[in-house]
């Protein structure tokens, strides 16, 4: 394992610290900017030589910038497939492009707040992530980083279309503003679908984070702006913040109703069974782990006394994923044994 990845595994992810406003419901906020170099074809259409030039330019610009001067600079073609999955599980690279690691890279800043993906769909994807609902301050940090990169690099830009992106659905601001929400109250109350539909009506994309089809694992949802053109960056930040605050309010109401009403005993039962399983299981799948961790998270949010705190629980959501377990073990581990390692790790935290 590379030294830099070992460090990533050891150091804290700031978004998991549960320090931001409304972090009970909003695990993390994220702002992402898509940027391309004006003089090179976009990654999907360029030659390996073009991609190598883009990677070199992006890394050089990062090293010149103040926020990323001391960051980790990782080239994917120097890493193993498990290490790629590890980065994808931490959402530092996108899983859709794991097939082709050549001339791709990622810059990871301190505590994983700022990072830059290089040669994904676009030459650069600058992103900022932190705990709780904190989109305006994240936008400020990312905007400053964008300006620093813009001093070193000439970005593809057009007066009419704004920043030009590989997929025209990202053109304009190139900006995706999102929040990762934990909505166990609304899920138990059966109110998720109308809320998601309502969000879509006001120009948001809302979708489950983990799980297959309509079965969403652990009640984690991501809300983001659907379009990127025709509004200012601040406007997108405000709109997503407003939409997310609305959902946070609905989640609080749902939790209050569940914990005060006739269904309280049902919630207590779910939570305490979850604690029983998490603190005693000898083998557990990612799916089962996520569901029970979600119930314990709900109990924390209701301020019930729990054997685990916010930060440890948030970290488990990341560490219990397959590549993370293998990275911690320092070797390839088949799925049956991963379930055992996962159960060991969760038990140790409870």
């Amino acid at each position: 394992m590379s030294f830099q990845l070992q460090n990533l595994l050891k150091l804290k992810m700031n978004w998991a610290t549960a320090s931001g406003p409304t972090h009970e419901t909003v695990l993390s906020s994220r702002v992402r900017l898509a940027r391309n170099l004006a003089r090179l074809p976009f990654p999907s259409h360029g030659s390996p030589r073009h991609a190598a030039a883009a990677l070199e330019d992006a890394f050089a610009a990062g090293r010149r910038s103040r926020p990323l001067a001391k960051a980790a600079y990782l080239r994917l073609d120097e890493l193993e497939p498990t290490e790629h999955l590890f980065l994808a599980e931490r959402r530092l690279i996108s899983p859709a492009l794991l097939q082709n690691p050549k001339q791709r890279g990622v810059i990871v800043g301190e505590r994983e707040i700022l990072s830059v993906m290089v040669n994904e769909e676009d030459h650069l994807r600058l992103q900022a992530v932190d705990s709780g609902l904190c989109l305006p301050s994240l936008w400020q940090r990312l905007s400053a980083l964008d300006a620093e990169f813009g001093r070193s690099l000439e970005f593809a830009y057009d007066r009419r279309w704004g920043y030009l992106t590989s997929c025209p659905t990202n053109a304009g601001t190139g900006m995706r503003v999102s929040a990762l929400l934990h909505l166990p109250g609304l899920a138990i109350a059966g109110m998720i679908n109308p809320i998601l539909k309502g969000l879509q009506k006001i120009g948001m994309t809302a979708r489950g984070m983990y799980g297959e089809g309509t079965k969403v694992l652990g009640d984690f949802y991501q809300v983001s702006n659907a379009t990127t053109l025709g509004r200012s960056e601040e406007d997108f930040v405000q709109r997503v913040s407003g939409a997310v605050l609305g959902v946070v309010e609905r989640e609080r109401e749902a939790q209050r109703a569940l914990s005060e009403g006739a269904r309280r005993i049902e919630i207590e039962d779910l939570v305490h069974r979850a604690i029983g399983i998490l603190s005693h299981a000898r083998s557990i799948s990612f799916e089962e782990g996520m569901q029970h961790l979600s119930y314990v998270r709900l109990a924390l949010s209701l301020r019930w006394k729990m054997p685990i705190g916010w930060e440890a629980l948030n970290e488990l959501l990341v560490l219990a994923q397959p590549a993370h377990l293998q990275m911690r073990a320092g070797r390839a581990v088949a799925s049956a044994e991963r379930r055992v390692l996962r159960a060991d790790m969760i038990r140790a935290a409870f």
């Binding site: 007066r159 009419r160 601001t173 025709g230 960056e233």
Partner: peptide, 26 residues
């Protein structure tokens, strides 16, 4: 974006509900 301007103009207007960038510039 210049080569396919007409097609993209139409498509982007319908996808984004807008066809002019009003945000930041380099």
């Amino acid at each position: 974006y210049s080569a396919f301007r007409e097609a993209l103009d139409d498509a982007l207007r319908r996808v984004h509900g807008a066809s002019k960038h009003t945000g930041l510039a380099p």
